[in-house]
Structures are given as C-alpha cells and as structure tokens.
C-alpha cells in the first residue's frame, strides 16, 4: 500500500508507473501468503486493530520522502525476498510451489531499488530500513534458526544477514542491534501500528454500504 501511495509523486513518470505496479505486486503477494497460511492450517487472524498486523514500523505511516521509498524498496523488500527464497527452497511443499511467481516479480523490485539507491542518498532512511529489516529477520538462535535447522528454511539468520549485505553492495551495515522489547510475532521492537485510514481500508467495513439493504 505504501508503494501505491507514491504513484503520483515519484520523481519521474516511469517511477510513478513502477510504484503503482510494485504496490499491486505486493498486495498480490500478501494474498498468496495468507492463502498459504490457511492451507498450512493457520486460520485468518482477527483484524480488530493495528496491533494485530505484524508489519515493520517502517510501514506504519505513509512515507513523506522519496528516499524512504527507495530505502524500503532496496532494503526491506530485499530482506523480504530473501526470506521468501529461504521458504521456497525449504522443505514445506506448499511454499516451494506457491512462491515462485512472487520471487520472479520481486526481482524487479530489487532492480528498481538498487538503481535508485545509486541515484539518491538515502542516508537516515537506509539506516532505519536496514535496522528494521534485521529486527524482522530476528535474533540468532531463535525461531528462524530453529526453522533453518529443521530444514523448513533454506537460510538461517546469519545467511540472511550476509545475503542482504551482498544485495546492498557497498553500503555500511548498521551496528549491533538492541533486542530489548523485540516481539517475536510482530518481529519489531517498537509498539504502534498502521494508521487508521489504512486499517479501515484493510478491514473493508465500508463495503457494507454497497451491499443490498435487503441482503
């Protein structure tokens, strides 16, 4: 959704179009992932409030600078793609088959982010995105590493960190992370959640207005 919000605000018309396209890709990917969860026996979570969404804090609010878009694109999207790769190459059959198309599409997000990173100095946005990406991957010897040892994930935490650094060739990784307050489900250290307008759209309650009254 945050990508899509930039469809009329990017620095070139071509980037406007790409922002819309990548926003649409990612909504499609969320559908695939929710579908996979269902198939794996996890019922849909309640969407009562913003705290039920396990999103990184970077996505809580709309971005106000193009550098934030670029850093999200280059760092967060890359970290996400690496995790999808780890799942697609792991031992869970459902994911091995379902995530292929997603990975193909994510390749273009990576290319987009990588090229724009050379163009803009993302500075603080890059640092923040990278920290949150590492928090999202999680600490060593916790759930991700356990899943890796069990063969479900093709990569462990160290692999993911290294691969992310490789994708961000030449950029300096953030210093040691602080794990106090880290929530294993939401995979973040800060409280908070998405803005009210986005929440309402996700809940889709306004659709009732367009249902037949007798209905």
């Amino acid at each position: 959704m945050r990508y899509a919000e930039w469809c009329i605000a990017a620095p070139t018309l071509e980037a406007d179009i790409a922002a819309a396209a990548m926003g649409l890709d990612d909504i499609g990917h969320s559908r695939v992932l929710y579908g996979s969860l269902r198939e794996l026996g996890t019922p849909d979570a309640a969407a009562d409030d913003a705290a039920t969404y396990a999103n990184v804090p970077y996505l809580d609010r709309p971005w106000t600078e193009w550098t934030q878009f670029v850093a999200a694109n280059a760092v967060l999207d890359s970290a996400f793609t690496l995790m999808m790769e780890a799942l697609a190459n792991g031992s869970v059959d459902v994911l091995r088959t379902r995530l292929k198309k997603m990975l193909q599409e994510e390749r273009y997000h990576t290319l987009h982010g990588r090229s724009w990173m050379q163009e803009v100095n993302a500075g603080a946005a890059l640092e923040r995105a990278w920290r949150e990406a590492l928090a999202w991957i999680g600490p060593e010897n916790s759930d991700v590493d356990e899943l890796h040892r069990a063969g479900r994930l093709a990569y462990g935490v160290r692999d993911l960190r290294r691969l992310l650094e490789e994708r961000l060739e030449g950029q300096a990784a953030p210093n040691a992370l602080e794990w106090a307050g880290w929530e294993p489900i939401r995979r973040r250290t800060q409280p908070g959640g998405i803005d009210q307008a986005t929440l309402e759209m996700l809940q889709g309650l306004a659709e009732k207005r367009y249902m037949p009254a007798s209905g």
Binding site: E14, I17, Y108, L111, H112, S115, W116
Partner: peptide, 12 residues
Amino acid sequence: DDDLAMAYARAT
C-alpha cells in the same frame, strides 16, 4: 541504466 529499464519495461 539496464536495471531500471528492466523494472520500467515490465511495469509499463
């Protein structure tokens, strides 16, 4: 560059 050209071609 080629990277962005690929991303743009596929999006456009």
